[in-house]
């Protein structure tokens, strides 16, 4: 573990660029008889924005807690930037923003940030962090008097104090309006371009599809899918290819690899498939089909298919 060595001796590390931001190897977690996590292998590269998607009770929070070193895996190992999670936390390399709580109501905004800043060996200046989070005007206000959105911005300010290499977010944009959400994600993306890795748990399937480079779908303590939004959608329910093709040879279409169903509606044919490219190629080269249309199912549907949770 050369990376660990260079960090602890505080020499510039060339290894930083190579260590995965997160590495989970065969991680399980049991709480008594309850198996919250049943075996997860996951590697996140630096600079990735990854959505952690799954229904409640899927093991998302437990997995995040293990990455943060708040709980120990029953078996397997969790590493953050090549370090033990608690070592990474001690160096301010990892931050997390929780959805609720985590604030003292009787402190002012500035006191909260200053308090947190004093616990790190290296931090960005408090004034700069307040200004970045857009809460300079609120600095002397008691946390209890801040709105939900203002408190959320404060949580972000606290998380960004140590300029973390890995940022974990739990349902980050809950309660934000459309404009707030857009501003938020453009800021997150800007930071990711500078190498920050972001892992966010979300129920907003749209959000995962729209803003994440990669979606990790988790269900019943296991990863059930891992890929880009479009890969996940294709994987689960495939696409539908629709074409105008009178007297279509449905048997030939059904025999194509990946096809799960063929429907004829008047002059139109609808082919449900996991490999829309093959169907399209066949239709355009071997048949007189025209007006070809390829549509994918929503992520919502993919989600339900993959997690096997009819909701």
């Amino acid at each position: 573990m050369t990376f660990t060595d260079t960090l602890t001796t505080a020499r510039p590390a060339t290894g930083t660029a190579h260590a995965p931001a997160v590495r989970l190897a065969g991680v399980t977690k049991h709480f008594g008889d309850v198996q919250a996590v049943r075996g997860i292998d996951l590697e996140l590269q630096q600079g990735e924005i990854v959505a952690f998607l799954g229904p409640n009770g899927a093991g998302k929070t437990t997995t995040i807690d293990m990455i943060l070193g708040l709980t120990r895996p029953t078996t397997g190992t969790a590493q953050v930037l090549g370090l033990e999670p608690r070592q990474a936390i001690a160096r301010g390399l990892v931050s997390a923003v929780m959805q609720t709580g985590g604030l003292l109501k009787d402190l002012t905004v500035r006191e909260t940030v200053a308090y947190t800043a004093s616990l790190f060996a290296d931090t960005r200046p408090v004034a700069e962090v307040l200004s970045d989070a857009g809460i300079t005007e609120l600095a002397d206000r008691k946390v209890a008097k801040c709105s939900g959105g203002e408190q959320q911005r404060l949580r972000f300010a606290m998380a960004l104090l140590s300029d973390p290499a890995l940022l974990l977010l739990d349902e980050p944009t809950t309660g934000m309006d459309v404009e707030g959400r857009r501003t938020f994600w453009s800021a997150i993306r800007r930071d990711a371009e500078h190498g920050r890795t972001v892992l966010f748990a979300t129920h907003y399937l749209e959000e995962a599809d729209q803003y994440a480079d990669r979606i990790v779908l988790i269900s019943h303590g296991r990863i059930v899918a891992d890929g880009t939004g479009s890969q996940i959608k294709a994987l689960a329910s495939g696409r539908t290819v629709r074409a105008t093709l009178p007297e279509a040879d449905t048997d030939a279409l059904t025999r194509l690899a990946g096809v799960t169903g063929v429907e004829v509606r008047g002059d139109s044919v609808l082919v449900h498939t996991r490999d829309s490219d093959a169907v399209a190629r066949h239709l355009l080269t071997h048949t007189p089909a025209r007006d070809l249309e390829i549509t994918s199912h929503g992520l919502e549907e993919a989600f339900i298919n993959l997690t096997g949770d009819a909701r």
């Binding site: 260079t6 960090l7 505080a10 020499r11 510039p12 590390a13 930083t16 930037l81 001690a90 160096r91 301010g92 390399l93 003292l104 009787d106 402190l107 006191e111 200053a114 308090y115 004093s118 616990l119 790190f120 060996a121 290296d122 931090t123 960005r124 200046p125 700069e128 970045d132 140590s162 300029d163 290499a165 500078h194």
Partner: peptide, 28 residues
């Protein structure tokens, strides 16, 4: 934006024990 080189991160002395926290806690 101030950035802090990830490779030269330090662990705080005395486990994070510091006077600023003491002062804020007393004020509270």
């Amino acid at each position: 934006t101030t950035t802090i080189d990830h490779a030269v991160r330090r662990v705080p002395a005395a486990g994070g024990f510091n006077r600023r926290v003491l002062r804020i806690e007393l004020l509270r």
